[in-house]
């Protein structure tokens, strides 16, 4: 089981990692662009539930959202994925994100949950505003992160 990684199928996919919270879990995406960091945070969200490498990205689901700022947009985006996972009973492992100001259009690819294969550890209730951050660091990398309630 890993707590950080890069999608080996697609090296352009961003890095992701988890960071600790006393009761729940922090998800963080890191990438050369804001879009890549958003995609990385989504991959980290999947990794809260299962190993993303076990999820075959076959079925596409399109999501669009907008918000007053980048940070609220990140939470909206993750919550839209939580909603799609909950209602379609799917998991996602590949993400494409397009940002235009504070509007987002994204496609996520995944497959239906198979308990025996995916062994999902926990379901995510929602993304929160705790430790919420979207920013570019001094080296130019983008970071998109928040804590998710499980």
């Amino acid at each position: 089981m890993s707590y950080a990684g890069t999608n080996v199928e697609s090296p352009l996919q961003p890095n992701w990692e988890h960071f600790p919270h006393e009761a729940d879990m922090g998800v963080r995406g890191i990438g050369p662009t804001k879009e890549a960091a958003f995609a990385g945070a989504a991959l980290a969200l999947t990794a809260v539930i299962t190993d993303p490498a076990e999820v075959i990205p076959t079925q596409p689901v399109t999501v669009s959202c907008d918000a007053p700022d980048d940070e609220l947009l990140l939470v909206d985006r993750l919550n839209a994925l939580v909603y799609e996972m909950a209602t379609r009973k799917v998991l996602f492992s590949r993400f494409e994100v397009h940002l235009n100001a504070h509007a987002l259009q994204a496609t996520a690819w995944g497959e239906p949950v198979e308990v025996a294969r995916h062994r999902p550890a926990v379901e995510v209730k929602g993304a929160t505003y705790t430790d919420l951050l979207v920013k570019q660091d001094q080296k130019g990398s983008w970071i998109a992160q928040c804590v998710v309630d499980v």
Partner: peptide, 14 residues
């Protein structure tokens, strides 16, 4: 409950 919490948290924050 999770969805209601998510939606009203945003609405109340804004």
């Amino acid at each position: 409950g999770h969805q209601i919490g998510t939606e009203f948290l945003k609405r109340m924050a804004i």
